[in-house]
Nucleic acid binder design. Structure first.
Lengths: 211, 211
DNA sequence: CATAATTTGTTATTTTATTAACAGGGCAAA
DNA sequence: TTTGCCCTGTTAATAAAATAACAAATTATG
């Protein structure tokens, strides 16, 4: 697909494409070959129009009677959101959260690979933690450079997030996913995504409370 | 604040209010008493106008010269998003992810309390895990009813998410935060929020990759 | 006292995202 | 064959969200 067009895809569509792919992979494993827009929509709790619109944006055409070819669509989404040679990811903070992420990705056939974990705790450093080699924070700069890691996940406690992010950027990380409760600052050329689970939980709590 | 007005606050504003509060709490602990809209905005990577707009919606007025009173604003946000008597939360799946959430909330002064964890693993059942009493899944229905739990967090593996959600709804849970990679179905009267960290990571990867 | 500098609160405008509407196509069944 | 149904793809309309613009207020300062 044309690289110029890819840049014009909205953030939200990128997110949904990632979600579509997950659903499609599941269907593919179950032996399905084709799927309708409204089937995808039901899985993701959105409308069929939204799905068709997103697929239109990426220039994929389905079959009028059979719907979309699952395998083809998976491949096309991969062409758009994946890097051809894969991307290396590091986790900063191998506590419960960091390990959960590491475990989740190990063994998964994906273009994203967790190649390193960093932690301050001496009993983790030098060992494999959840299938990922764990290094001390002091080694981070070197490892990031050596491995060519461009993506980092922050799962350190909130009070260490800012310093961790600063160090990551200095070491050359270009994209940060911050799961700590503390927002961090990055230069303009670094992509930052922050997610705070407390906010999500408070949102649920709000819509559940008896007004 | 008027309960009718509260219902009209958009989802996104609710989320931001939660984030504002977190930032405000941090400033409050540091001894600050007042804050300007652009200060809040900088922390959250949004614009000052957005902040003022949100605060307008909840009817809070700041001081022209000093900005917003941090304590008052924290209290007002609490009045809107918190339940007066607090809300009980259960975690389904006490793996790394579940424990991370449990740990995060224990000891925190909040209107949301994790009162139970559920797991299939016998070595966890009957013990405290990350400060939370852990029960077997079979006991879930009873515990949820007894404790009056209305909010549940799903941190089980993807292949168990659907069944877990079904059981939660049956037991009377009214709000679900699903962290598993598998989307679930809930009846209309149950609020569902789904978050998939892979999607977030793929989004970061997309914007970092060299097009 | 008047002026400049800030900041809030609110209305207007723009942009973005979602939903609706519908033309066109292909298959199935009458 | 032809009618009807159910898809896709696309344009049009609507809704939601974010941004811009600016009046009003307050304090500091010359």
């Amino acid at each position: 697909m044309d690289q110029e067009l890819i840049k014009k895809i909205p953030h939200k569509t990128i997110q949904r494409l990632s979600q579509y792919r997950r659903a499609l992979l599941l269907c593919f494993e179950q032996g399905k070959t084709h799927i309708f827009s409204h089937e995808i929509a039901n899985i993701q709790h959105i409308t069929a129009v939204q799905v068709r619109r997103d697929l239109m944006l990426i220039g994929y055409s389905g079959n009028l009677r059979k719907g979309y070819n699952i395998k083809d669509l998976i491949d096309l989404i991969g062409e758009i959101i994946d890097s051809p040679n894969g991307q290396k990811v590091a986790i900063f903070g191998m506590g419960n959260f960091g390990r959960a992420i590491a475990k989740y990705f190990t063994g998964r056939r994906s273009k994203l690979t967790i190649v390193a974990g960093f932690d301050v705790s001496p009993e983790k450093v030098g060992k494999q933690v959840a299938g990922v080699p764990c290094y001390s924070v002091e080694e981070a700069q070197q490892i990031i450079l050596e491995e060519g890691i461009r993506i980092g996940i922050i799962t350190v406690p909130g009070d260490q997030a800012v310093e961790t992010a600063r160090m990551m950027v200095e070491a050359g990380v270009k994209g940060i996913l911050n799961f700590s409760p503390t927002p961090v600052e990055v230069p303009e050329n670094v992509f930052l995504e922050e997610y705070d689970m407390v906010t999500s939980l408070e949102k649920v709590a709000f819509y559940v409370k008896e007004h």
